[in-house]
Design a protein around this nucleic acid. Sequence first.
DNA 1: TTGGTTGGGTTCATTATTTGAACCACTGGT
DNA 2: ACCAGTGGTTCAAATAATGAACCCAACCAA
Lengths: 261, 261
Amino acid sequence: MGTITKALDLLNFFAKQKPEIGLTEFVRLVNRDKATVHRHLTELMENGFLEQNPVTRAYRLGPAILRLSGVREATHPLRSVLRPIVEDIARQVGELTHVSLLQGDVLSPALHFDPMTHGTQVAFDESEILPLHATSSGLAVLAFADEDVTRSVLKRPLTKYADGTITTADELRSVLDEVRRTGTASQDRTFDSEVCSQGAPLFGVGGKVVGAVSIALPAVRDTDEKRAEIREALRDGMVRITQQLGGDLPPEHAEKWQSAV
Amino acid sequence: MGTITKALDLLNFFAKQKPEIGLTEFVRLVNRDKATVHRHLTELMENGFLEQNPVTRAYRLGPAILRLSGVREATHPLRSVLRPIVEDIARQVGELTHVSLLQGDVLSPALHFDPMTHGTQVAFDESEILPLHATSSGLAVLAFADEDVTRSVLKRPLTKYADGTITTADELRSVLDEVRRTGTASQDRTFDSEVCSQGAPLFGVGGKVVGAVSIALPAVRDTDEKRAEIREALRDGMVRITQQLGGDLPPEHAEKWQSAV
DNA sequence: TTGGTTGGGTTCATTATTTGAACCACTGGT
DNA sequence: ACCAGTGGTTCAAATAATGAACCCAACCAA
């Protein structure tokens, strides 16, 4: 692990619930020497990626992020292209819908929308990094990802997040086969003990997976009819979003899924 | 310059006009060895800060940025707090208004709004990093910044961007004195040969400058009346934004500016 | 075909940078 | 006065970054 990765990795610990992190807490989180962590933090700060709460001296994300996201959106407007589609899907099925992008061997949320049509909602943290093996988005991506992504996921132990989490390589492989057949992944309390979700892969140019669209709902609302309805919506969304991204469905699967719809 | 800074520095070359940059171009831009640059690029890519155009192999900003800006906005909603104020000011004077934040010895744009009430507009690139000595925002910040910021600006030569650019330390110092007296900085073709602007500092807790709000307009529209009107609007905006940021005007100047308004 | 150019990417000995144990300074609690 | 908890710093030792030279592919013109 290079120095750059070690430093950038620090940024991944920030989330909605954890907007500020102090030096000592960081040291505990990453299990590295205090001096090292401190130097990395100050260097990130000098570059505007972090700033320091002047009173608590804790660190939080800095203004450089704002500028970069401005550039990225201005030149490669993913969010604004995705938003109408995601909102449309979410309203159609009445449940929280979100898009995440593959980033190494992990998923990074890009956009979510909750139509708020029910009394209970799934608490989606748009800032949390999602593991590939324990989320429907992740399974959808993994099923179509390069072999080396699967390998790097299996290299580390499959962390158990909830009762349903897949924890063995064999189990994972059979689930992925199923996903490849149907084109959508479903998940029953594998990440959160009260949430079910289904996901479908999104493809870029040349049919490479770039991420996933997925719909999550409280387990109590996950009936068979609803499930089928969601699968329909996802198949549709997968095609629309992939088109918008300028991507192609992998030809070896495309017709099969078409007919299934 | 540490490895982390060298890598993060690469990200600063992306702008609206330059959304994708290839390896060789990067090497030219930063004047470092190809192998080094390549390693930095791949490490940034592995962390999702860059992604590679699969066909041209050029690099562009990656999805990690999206997630981080999501967290930053969710936990520290600067943009959404700023937006109504900035839009209000912009509509009031009918000219492009923007807020930038101090980041090291340079300004990073955070938000801008153009009311589009005239036939000609200032082309504001929200992705371009602004120098402190050649912009009204920069002068406003510099006038109230710590001594070491001024020192680090003077350490490097004062790059000439247009006819009006301040290029000597003495000239700069006298301008900064003037800014401290009036509370606003004005600029006549110092950054772009057709643009005039005025700026006012923004303060955080303890009266430390955190950035500036500024209004830019084509030089042809820069009459004396307009100028006075803009100064009024900026004084007002400075106070409102500083309050919203939970900051304090530096007491040694506050009353002077109050009376001037 | 050949040779030249420009692009991306890689190798490995040399070198310089990162690292971490121990240290200091401050704050709040007892 | 002491301890435990912060954040932050130092300097010799070890590790990781560096860069000259290299390879490969695509493109172009003779």
